[in-house]
């Protein structure tokens, strides 16, 4: 049942001359909630942008199923990425459109559904994320958490196979963050989607993560992969233990190296 949806081979990422990460190898399986972890600035968002085809790798390959994203022509590439839904850190809602128009956008642009049907789907998706009745609000009229959920509704508009999240719970209070986690879990189960998520929230990582990778800024590569619980139990790398325990585990014997 371990069917690879995305596999990354020898991926190196760079901004111009500046190398961000190199030699990344990992596989995302169907039904996974795949967590990308790592310290601030190590390149998690950059990796996510590579996975969804917004940035081209400096080296290496990204495969969707069996097909290479790089080798594909524009049409084939669109086809590969068509079943993705993405929630950006700031929601990425178009500020000039209402919530309903935002969620309807992918539907009107990529399908031939009748206007009535689109209205129904939009209402259904907004209801799924608990925003029924907010159809005619503009994004600026919503709280940060509501914008995130609206972004999620739009990401799900086309019933994606893979959902990508960049720090979905950053800036949310713990309760709202937990609701969002629950929502993601429930959606994964009922839509049988795969979820790729960048997050710092330990609570989320342990609550929903089924598989994870850990990127390191110093060695500029991936230093561990596996399920978060296993990583905590079996990893001997102090960086990973520190990250997963908020540094509590090692605080005592961490000498000063002036």
């Amino acid at each position: 049942m371990n069917q690879a949806v995305i596999s990354v081979r020898n991926l190196s990422m760079a901004y111009g001359e500046v190398l961000i990460q190199r030699d990344l190898n990992f596989t995302i399986n169907r039904g996974d909630i795949f967590v990308i972890m790592g310290g601030s600035g190590c390149g998690k968002s950059t990796l996510l942008r590579h996975l969804i085809g917004l940035q081209a790798p400096a080296q290496g390959e990204i495969f969707y199923g069996g097909a290479s994203l790089l080798a594909a022509g524009p049409q084939a590439r669109q086809q590969l990425l068509r079943k993705n839904g993405v929630l950006f850190q700031s929601g990425g809602l178009l500020s000039s459109l209402t919530l309903a128009e935002n969620v309807a956008l992918p539907l009107t642009e990529s399908t031939r559904l009748a206007a009535k049907k689109i209205r129904d789907i939009v209402a259904y998706k907004l209801a799924l994320v608990g925003l029924a009745g907010f159809e005619d609000y503009y994004p600026a009229q919503l709280s940060g958490g509501m914008q995130k959920r609206a972004g999620l509704a739009r990401a799900m508009a086309l019933d994606p196979d893979i959902l990508f999240f960049d720090e979905p719970s950053a800036g949310l209070d713990p309760i709202t963050a937990k609701h969002l986690d629950d929502l993601i879990l429930r959606l994964r189960d009922s839509l049988s989607a795969t979820v790729v998520i960048v997050t710092h929230e330990l609570a989320s990582i342990f609550a929903i993560g089924s598989n994870a990778i850990f990127l390191d800024a110093d060695s500029k590569t991936l230093i561990a992969s596996g399920s978060p619980h296993e990583l905590l139990a079996s990893s001997s790398d102090p960086k990973i233990i520190q990250f997963l325990t908020r540094g509590n585990h090692q605080a005592a014997d961490k000498g000063v190296n002036a």
Partner: peptide, 9 residues
């Protein structure tokens, strides 16, 4: 928003 548009094709 611009990246979001790209991901929506």
């Amino acid at each position: 928003e611009i990246d979001a548009l790209k991901t929506m094709n």
